[in-house]
Design a protein around this nucleic acid. Structure first.
Lengths: 353, 353
DNA sequence: CATCGCAGTGTTAACGCTCACACTGTTGCG
DNA sequence: CGCAACAGTGTGAGCGTTAACACTGCGATG
């Protein structure tokens, strides 16, 4: 205690410390506690080699001084950074946002900080800027949400020494040797298509959303099911992420009396298709059945409530975080298929007239 | 040029550098370019005091070596960190996600990195953890999305020396002296209410969403308008962020034949209210008119298309970034009201029967 | 009772960068 | 032609932390 008092009592050398008015550093804590700063560091990293009394006292001083560890310094000193950066095309689209939420949740409980970087398009400029941003040495790992070409391009352009994992479509990304995590949408798409066929529909149309490859897993599950059933495989209509393009595709389908069942690339697409059908005077599910993908929070409250595939994006995000943490820790790459999403049958599907 | 060549030619002191096998540092670049590391630093920070030829050569070496500046080291060395952390209650709710997108966009073009921290609730534990996380010295600024109590609590608990700005409801947060930015929703709520009144409705009911204060700006705009019009002010029904609670509120309204017009706290709420009305056999807008808030991307494609208030969350986010950048740069606090959002009249509102 | 081992602590040197300052050479001016 | 001014560059110190190692006692071991 004498040491402590002495340290506090003497103020003839106040000017020696740089600018102690600012946030206290580990050294200030050490001085106030009468120990070396290495001991404080040990307390912070709960090293076992610290006497219980010392630890308690240091903790007390930390509290009293309002000391907060400096992440940047820690990263510099250790060479490790407990940060993961999420590369994402758009934070407002449900699947992306929910995946981000899952990543953040897992990161938070694992003590990681999370960064976000939006890649607006798959243009070389956007992609290279994003790559540049995340390839900061000791910036930690990166999780690329590669549901689309922008993400996929970033993944391809990323230097091999940057630890990264991708959240992808089912099956992963061809030609990319990275850890990948995905939900098995192919299976779910097949289930959804079969559901429609079993209801008695002659065939099922499909409005596709953007995808990394030309053909999404959703689309291929749909196609395989139709082929296996020996029914005609209609031409695929492609929409963008914007609702309007889906509406346009929906309008084309609505004009075709042969169309009685539509598997939509996601719920937003289903919303727009349903609108187009409505405008054409065709009832859902009376005249046309529709199925979405994602199960956005409101889907159960639509009129009619939407039959859709529930995607557990939060689980996807959590798995991505676990994977990147493993990768940063030096474990080998892995490709993880999560449990297949399941079809939630509600009101938008019915037997054809 | 001779110096450069000489420096490149000589490799007898290759072992002097520590572990140059790893990512190159500023010193490796300097050595390879035959200049001091300070010169490289100057090039990186485009200081004007560098000869054009030197700069070009250094840039070339940087490119060749694949050098990437280390953000952590830079932050440590300068004491400044060009990172902003966004404190957010939920990344999947549209208003939050869109605001985040706006912040990120502005941050990206201003050269800031962005971090995300979710506060799951306004519980002391969650709040203090979030505060702890963002009060890292030299972690840069923080933008708190304070649409709810969780955000507001974080803001209140944040040490005064942490630079922060809040995206709030109209009017800002009482008792908090921080920079704040908001969209004037009060005005928009008044417009929406007036629209309904002008259509001939006796009064307008309101389903409120969570808000920082007990009474949201949306609610107070609604109330003021009803009072000014001298019509009865119905009891406010309160919903949470989840669609189900809004549905429950909607079910109560649907059961009341007096209800002919409802101003919903946001579009999700409107969706659920519309569903409840549908289940009760009441047509929208035939029997009941509804108005939402936010104008989510799909709102125009609902059946009926939703009359709602378009909130420019991206602009809100951009303004927040500008504000935090200013704050970090030492400029005084400011309270900014952005242009009031406007009502978009679509199909869900009509004169009462 | 000398020695080993280990709990507990301190010391030194990085980590990669920026800052403040010092230095060199050239230019411009009286 | 001497000196100030300045462009251009280098040097030294430090940012707050961790890692590696060195040291000090004390109890256990033979």
């Amino acid at each position: 205690m004498t040491d402590f008092d002495a340290a506090i009592g003497s103020d003839h050398d106040v000017e020696v410390t740089r600018r102690s008015s600012a946030t206290p550093s580990i050294r200030d804590v050490a001085a106030a506690a009468g120990v070396s700063y290495q001991t404080v560091s040990r307390v912070l990293n709960d090293s076992p080699r610290v006497n219980a009394d010392t630890r308690r006292h240091v903790l007390e001083v930390i509290e009293r001084l309002g000391y907060r560890p400096n992440r940047a310094a820690r990263a510099l000193g250790s060479g490790l950074s407990s940060t993961v950066t999420v590369v994402i095309a758009n934070t407002t689209l449900y699947g992306y946002a929910a995946t981000l939420q899952g990543i953040e949740e897992a990161a938070r409980s694992a003590g990681f900080a999370v960064g976000v970087r939006v890649v607006e398009s798959d243009s070389p400029v956007d992609v290279s800027h994003a790559v540049e941003h995340v390839s900061d040495p000791n910036a930690g790992g990166v999780v690329v949400i590669a549901f689309d070409t922008a993400g996929a391009e970033v993944l391809r352009a990323l230097p091999a020494d940057v630890p990264a994992v991708a959240a992808t479509e089912a099956g992963g990304l061809a030609g990319v040797s990275r850890s990948m995590v995905f939900l098995d949408e192919r299976q779910a798409a097949a289930d959804a298509t079969r559901h429609l066929l079993e209801l008695g529909h002659r065939t099922v149309h499909h409005v596709a959303i953007p995808s990394e490859s030309g053909t999404s897993a959703r689309q291929s599950g749909w196609r395989a099911t139709l082929e296996a059933a020996g029914v005609p495989v209609p031409e695929v209509l492609t929409a963008g992420w914007d609702v309007r393009s889906a509406y346009l595709a929906g309008a084309r389908l609505a004009a075709d009396p042969e169309v009685t069942a539509v598997l939509c690339g996601n719920d937003d697409t289903a919303l727009a298709v349903r609108r187009a059908l409505y405008e054409a005077g065709r009832d859902v599910p009376g005249d046309v059945s529709i199925i979405g993908f994602d199960d956005v929070p409101g889907a159960a409250y639509w009129t009619p409530a939407l039959t859709t595939v529930r995607m557990d994006f939060a689980a996807l995000g959590r798995a991505c975080l676990a994977a990147i943490a493993a990768e940063v820790a030096g474990e080998p790459r892995q490709v993880i298929a999560l449990a297949p999403p399941s079809l939630v049958v509600r009101e938008s599907t019915a037997p054809p007239r």
